[in-house]
C-alpha cells in the first residue's frame, strides 16, 4: 500500500553520498518535529529495553493472573476506578484475567519494536545484497534478479505473510518468525532502489579508479559503493520501520502473528475489542501506544529524509513565500 509512495519519495543517490554525519545531525536538529519524534522514539526504545526493570519497580510481571482483582460477578470487569489503576497496577489490570496492563504494554513494546527492527534489518540486508548484485552483474544476472524483485513487489504482502505463518510449525519462536516473514516478503522495493542508486554510482570516477587499480568486485562494493548507498537506503529503511510495526500489529490482531502468552499490542486490541464499554482503558492503551509509536517513527523518518536530501524539502517549499522556513 504505502510502498509505492515511500519509494517515490526516496532521494536519488548523489555523487557525494552521505555528506558527513555531522551535517546530517545539524539538518536533523533543525527540524523541531523530528526532534520531538526522536525523543519519543528514544523513550519508547528505553522503555522496551528496560521492561524487566520497570515492571520490577512496579512489582508486577506481564503473565501472572490476578483473579482477585476482577469482579467475576460482572463478567470479569476490573475492580476499582479506571480499570483498577492504583499504586500496585499503574495502568490497571486486564479484564477477566487481572494481568497487569503496564507490564503487558511495555513488554508489548519490546515485541513491536523488536519485530519491526528485525524485519527492517532483513529487508535492508536482502534488498542491498540483491540490488548491488543486480547492478554489478552481467545482463542475465540483472534481468533475472530484476524480475525476481518485480515478483516480490507484486506479491500481496499481507496475504503471503498470512499464508506463510500458517505452514510453519508452532514450535518456532513466533516473534522471530514474524520478523523473518515480514522481511522476506517485502525487500523488493529496497532492491530496486539499491539497483538504481548503484547504477548511478558505478559510473563515477572514483569507482572506475578502484576498478582500474585491480580491486575485486566485492571490495569495490563494500568500500566504494556501500557508503554512497547509505543515504537512499537509510531513508527508505527509516520509513519502513513504522510500516513494519503496523504489519506486525495487524498480523497479531488477526491472531496469526505473535501468539499468547507473549504480549503484543495487536493481540491486546483483539481481546480488548469486546471490552470497550466495561473497560475502555484496556482498548485505549494499546491503540494509543500504536498510534504514538507509528506517528513518532513516521515523523522521524520524514525528518531523516529531509536531512539526507534537503533538495526534496526545498523543492516542495518553492513559491510559498516563506523561504525562511525552508527546511535545509
Amino acid at each position: 500500500m504505502s510502498e509505492a509512495l515511500v519509494a517515490a519519495e526516496i532521494p536519488e543517490a548523489s555523487a557525494s553520498g552521505i555528506s558527513g554525519a555531522r551535517q546530517f545531525w545539524r539538518r536533523l536538529r533543525a527540524q523541531r518535529a523530528a526532534l520531538v519524534a526522536a525523543a519519543v522514539v528514544a523513550l519508547l526504545v528505553l522503555a522496551a529495553l528496560a521492561a524487566p526493570l520497570l515492571t520490577a519497580i512496579e512489582g508486577q510481571d506481564p503473565t501472572t493472573y490476578h483473579p482477585s482483582l476482577v469482579d467475576s460477578a460482572r463478567g470479569g470487569v476490573p475492580i476499582g476506578s479506571f480499570g483498577g489503576i492504583g499504586a500496585d497496577h499503574w495502568l490497571g489490570v486486564e479484564p477477566q484475567t487481572g494481568r497487569d496492563l503496564f507490564a503487558r504494554l511495555v513488554y508489548g513494546a519490546r515485541v513491536s519494536l523488536g519485530v519491526a527492527l528485525g524485519a527492517t534489518a532483513v529487508q535492508v540486508f536482502l534488498g542491498v545484497v540483491v540490488g548491488i548484485a543486480t547492478a554489478l552483474g552481467n545482463r542475465w544476472v540483472d534481468q533475472l534478479l530484476s524480475r525476481i524483485s518485480d515478483i516480490i513487489v507484486a506479491m500481496p504482502l499481507m496475504i503471503m505473510a498470512l499464508a506463510l505463518l500458517a505452514i510453519v510449525p508452532g514450535s518456532f519462536p513466533r516473534p522471530v518468525l514474524v520478523a523473518l516473514i515480514i522481511g522476506f516478503v517485502a525487500w523488493g522495493t529496497i532492491a530496486k532502489i539499491t539497483r538504481a542508486a548503484t547504477l548511478t554510482l558505478k559510473e563515477l570516477d572514483y569507482v572506475a579508479a578502484a576498478r582500474l587499480s585491480g580491486w575485486s568486485t566485492l571490495r569495490i562494493a563494500r568500500r566504494e559503493l556501500l557508503p554512497g548507498l547509505a543515504a537512499p537506503v537509510i531513508t527508505y529503511a527509516a520509513l519502513m520501520v513504522p510500516v513494519n510495526i503496523g504489519i506486525e500489529a495487524s498480523l497479531s490482531f488477526l491472531g496469526v502473528g505473535v501468539k499468547p502468552p507473549t504480549p503484543s499490542w495487536g493481540q491486546m486490541l483483539t481481546s480488548a475489542n469486546v471490552w470497550y464499554q466495561a473497560a475502555p482503558q484496556y482498548l485505549l492503551l494499546p491503540a494509543g501506544a500504536l498510534f504514538v509509536t507509528v506517528l513518532a517513527l513516521t515523523v522521524l523518518g520524514d525528518g531523516v529524509r529531509t536531512a539526507l536530501d534537503p533538495r526534496a524539502a526545498s523543492r516542495l517549499r518553492v513559491g510559498t513565500g516563506r523561504k525562511g522556513e525552508a527546511k535545509a
Partner: peptide
C-alpha cells in the same frame, strides 16, 4: 493526514465502530 498515515486501519475501524 500525518495522523491518518500513522493510525493502522483496524484501529480507525475499531474506534469508528465503537
Amino acid at each position: 493526514t500525518l495522523a491518518g498515515v500513522a493510525t493502522p486501519s483496524f484501529v480507525i475501524g475499531l474506534v469508528l465502530m465503537i
